[in-house]
Write a protein that binds this DNA or RNA. Structure first.
Length: 123
RNA sequence: UAAGCAGAAUAUGUAAUCGCGGCUGACAGAACCGAAAGGGGUCAGGUGAGGAAAGUCCGGGCUUCACAGGGCAGGAUACCGGAUAACGUCCGGCGGAGGCGACUCCAGGGACAGUGCAACAGAAAUAAACCGCCAGGAGACUGGUAAGGGUGGAAAGGCAGUGUAAGAGACUACCGCCCCGGUGGUGACAGCGGGGGCACAUGUAAACCCUAUCCGAAGCAAGACCGAACAGAAAACCAUGUGGCUGCCCGUCACGUUUUCAGGUAGGUCGCUUGAUCCUGCCGGCAACGGCAGGGCUAGAUAGAUGAUUACACACGACAUAACCCGGCUUAUCGUUCUGCUUACAAA
């Protein structure tokens, strides 16, 4: 991903869960916390309750792909944790994509209208 | 052709665009991150999950720790021979059970080493007379009897005959069982001959147990190397200072600074894929498998890479995602194809 890192340490996940704000819809839960940097960091969590390994991997890839294709819509400087809920296990790409963008708008870190990262598009 | 039996192969495909993990080559060999170790750029090419990758149920390699030798405990296995690195796996047999057959299935050592258990029913369960039958007696009843009834998973080999008062391996034939001998086979065992009238007298070892054989423990988050932080040891420095012994001086100790050594957390690198390897051919073997020759290299991530979109095709796509590596077992599964064989019918 061009503008983002992935969130790796369990410690970082715990920080976002504890101090961040959260919104949820039918398929996903999104936690967000400002990280005082130029970049976003994205963490994806799919519980074993959702399904077996094949289902969990597919959901992780769908969420990552949705974020990648709309990366320029997100404001920068946030740690995001996306948690998949059990209802998401039969979803296709389109449903995950719209659910992700919906949660981003609730957090007010997604611009509905235009691309915003012009300062980063200079390079 | 129909019904079946055994085995094997395959596991949506094609094209385009965007994206991801290794690898190779070229150009840089910088910037940047980090104390260091180390990481890291751009472009191109090529490559990138399974038959079960699953369950983690067995067996081995590998690694670290432990280990003179022996025994106990605990666990596993249990007809015979072979294969193998090894196995509880596989192959070929034996015995038993099922099927017309191809073929399938088997928790298949020991109950004269010992202990336990066997409900209910039944007269009685390891010990026999309830009914019946026979004899005696007027009768009550006494005696004989395991052929018949009834109970039960099991009632003292089965069945037929002789025999008898009625009966009984009491006697006889056949079958079964036990013992002995020799034959074939590496062996489990098979079949042959002779003998015993059948005794210990039931079942249960998936009850404890006995016998024989095997087993050290933990696992790649193993482990090896580098190594901030942080404890430690030694040496040097007393230039200044603080505190204790002590109110002061000397002395000494601790704190202090530098260097070296050893340990080692976070972090990093390796382990990490060339192997009991795969493919083809020939040879040995009924087979599992082994030998020889030639050829191939086919993921290696470390929060964890295979996805998204579009188009087309049809059978409309099941189960399921490597995590050190192999050999098995078990379980899940949409379909398609092939090979060999059996039975029935038809044809010849």
């Amino acid at each position: 991903m061009k503008y983002s890192q992935s969130l790796k340490k369990n410690r970082d996940f715990q920080t976002v869960y504890r101090k961040g704000t959260s919104y949820a819809n039918k398929y996903l839960v999104m936690y967000a916390l400002g990280n005082q940097s130029e970049e976003n960091r994205l963490g994806i969590s799919v519980s074993k309750k959702v399904g077996n390994s094949v289902v969990r991997h597919r959901l992780t890839r769908l969420i990552r792909e949705s974020y990648r294709l709309h990366e320029e819509l997100f404001h920068s400087g946030w740690d995001l944790v996306i948690v998949s809920r059990a209802a998401a296990k039969d979803c296709g790409y389109k449903e995950i994509e719209s659910a992700l963008l919906h949660l981003g708008r609730l957090h007010r870190i997604v611009d509905t209208e235009r691309k915003k990262k012009n300062e980063n598009d200079n390079d």
